[in-house]
Amino acid sequence: LTDEELVTMSVRELNQHLRGLSKEEIIQLKQRRRTLKNRGY
């Protein structure tokens, strides 16, 4: 997933992508998404 996709994707879509990932990967992705959102994309 690109940063842009992460930010513009709805939470529902995101959760579908996260299905099948490990807990660590999910946590990393969610942190990255929060960081991007805070940057004001």
Rank of each mutant, 00 (worst) to 15 (best):
L1K: 02
L1A: 02
L1S: 01
L1E: 01
T2R: 04
T2K: 04
T2N: 04
T2D: 04
T2C: 04
T2L: 04
D3W: 04
D3R: 01
D3T: 02
E4V: 08
E4C: 14
E4H: 15
E4A: 10
E4F: 14
E4S: 08
E4K: 10
E4L: 14
E5K: 07
E5W: 05
E5S: 04
E5H: 06
E5D: 09
L6V: 03
V7L: 13
V7M: 14
V7P: 01
V7A: 09
T8G: 11
T8M: 11
M9D: 01
M9A: 02
M9P: 02
M9R: 02
M9V: 03
S10L: 03
S10K: 04
S10Q: 03
S10R: 04
V11I: 14
V11P: 08
V11R: 15
R12S: 10
R12K: 13
E13H: 05
E13R: 07
E13A: 08
E13C: 07
E13L: 06
E13V: 06
E13W: 03
L14H: 00
L14A: 00
L14T: 00
L14V: 03
Q16P: 03
Q16I: 13
Q16D: 10
H17N: 05
H17S: 05
H17I: 13
H17P: 00
L18N: 02
L18S: 04
L18V: 07
L18R: 01
L18G: 03
L18W: 05
L18M: 14
R19D: 06
R19L: 09
R19K: 13
R19V: 10
R19I: 10
G20M: 06
G20H: 09
L21A: 06
L21V: 04
L21F: 07
S22M: 05
S22T: 12
K23S: 08
K23N: 08
K23D: 08
K23H: 10
K23G: 06
E24P: 09
E24Y: 10
E25N: 06
E25I: 11
E25W: 04
E25P: 00
E25Y: 07
E25M: 12
E25H: 07
E25C: 08
I26Q: 15
I26M: 07
I26A: 15
I26S: 08
I26W: 05
I26T: 06
I26N: 04
I26F: 04
I27N: 09
I27F: 12
I27E: 11
Q28M: 13
Q28E: 12
Q28K: 14
L29T: 06
L29Y: 06
K30C: 13
K30G: 03
K30Q: 08
K30S: 04
Q31V: 10
Q31G: 06
Q31P: 00
Q31F: 08
Q31N: 10
Q31H: 10
R32T: 00
R32F: 01
R33N: 01
R34W: 08
R34Y: 05
R34N: 08
R34G: 04
R34I: 08
R34V: 06
T35A: 15
T35N: 14
T35L: 15
T35F: 15
L36Q: 02
L36G: 02
L36A: 04
K37T: 05
K37V: 07
N38W: 07
N38P: 03
R39V: 10
R39M: 15
R39K: 14
R39S: 13
R39H: 11
R39Y: 09
G40F: 13
G40P: 07
G40N: 09
Y41S: 12
